[in-house]
């Protein structure tokens, strides 16, 4: 019951298929990252899940309520942060949140409490009585975020929640999302890969309106060609000799020179099998042969690389 089910959702804009038959289910406790290049259909999908745009085909069921058949009940359960965080610039922060909580059905003392709580939770106390139009982008983003959590919804849908925030604010918002995640279903879209990595425990990548990958961030990373490779920086002037030496080590597939300076060089060594660690063998080999080691790094894989291959291939 406590889940969002997206069933064969499809959207045409004219003849163009913006979202093409997307189906997935998100359970309680999951933070689903929705990734994709611009124009892939992330926002359109989220807008259909929240009931803003009617789908051309298919539907979404939020905690048992169909967004089309039982729209109001479904919308009551959702907290939604739209793209670009729209707010009413002529209202004060308190006034705006008061309006949002009124529309969410709170009244009297309870409403006041909700507004106060949310203001505190989203670090808005200092701008409480300020007109939203005079606030910086970061504050506006947080005001709109506050709007989405004011009724403590079980289902949170956040379209680029950290867009326009500085690194500290990003960190805070991410912490907030993580803290709330245990008892909620959260879907967030982003095109920042490190963000997905920091916050989400599941990642769906869409390209051209279709799901092209659905896995955890670490699985995603493992798809990277450099995953499991060892990068070394050594003091020395003869990289060729080192390369031929290191290729003899058991489990090593190839080794490549990445960079060469006057007195040091950097190599990347790829394992035969990504799941067998080779770093220890390489290091002992290096120390036996008295190479002077400057740095060692085991590559986790590069999300941006994986992202690029997934979203640009087979088209």
């Amino acid at each position: 019951m406590h889940k969002i089910e997206v069933k064969n959702i499809t959207k045409y804009f004219g003849a163009k298929k913006a979202v093409d038959d997307i189906t997935f289910t998100v359970e309680k406790g999951e933070i689903l990252g929705f990734l994709g290049p611009n124009g892939a259909g992330k926002s359109t999908t989220m807008r259909m899940i929240t009931g803003f745009i009617p789908p051309s085909d298919g539907t979404a069921v939020i905690g048992g309520s169909d967004i089309i058949e039982d729209s109001i009940a479904a919308r009551e359960k959702i907290g939604y942060l739209p793209e670009n965080a729209p707010v009413y610039p002529d209202m004060t922060v308190v006034g705006y949140l008061d309006f949002c909580s009124e529309i969410r059905g709170f009244s009297g003392g309870e409403r006041k409490k909700k507004v106060e709580e949310t203001i505190e939770k989203c670090f808005l106390t200092e701008v409480k009585y300020q007109t939203i139009g005079t606030l910086s982008k970061g504050f506006r983003q947080r005001v709109c975020f506050a709007q989405s959590i004011i009724h403590d919804p079980e289902y949170l849908i956040l379209d680029e929640p950290t867009d326009g925030l500085d690194p500290n604010q990003k960190h805070e918002v991410r912490l907030m999302i993580r803290r709330m995640s245990a008892e909620k279903v959260i879907i967030l879209s982003t095109h920042i890969l490190e963000e997905m990595d920091a916050v989400c425990n599941r990642a769906i990548i869409i390209a051209n309106g279709k799901i092209v990958s659905d896995s955890t961030p670490s699985d995603l990373r493992a798809k990277s060609p450099v995953h499991g490779a060892v990068s070394l920086t050594l003091r020395g002037t003869d990289p060729e000799k080192f390369l031929s030496f290191v290729q003899e080590i058991n489990g090593v597939k190839t080794a490549k020179l990445i960079k060469k300076d006057t007195d040091a060089f950097k190599v990347r060594i790829f394992p035969e099998n990504k799941d067998t660690p080779i770093a220890d063998r390489i290091i002992s080999g290096v120390s036996e042969n008295k190479y002077e080691l400057k740095s060692v790094f085991v590559e986790q894989g590069r999300l941006d690389e994986v992202f690029r291959t997934i979203t640009t291939s087979d088209q």
Partner: peptide, 14 residues
């Protein structure tokens, strides 16, 4: 213009 229509139409009101 401000995009708030997206808020108002996703609030639980008709």
């Amino acid at each position: 213009r401000m995009g708030t229509i997206e808020l108002i139409l996703t609030f639980p009101i008709t």
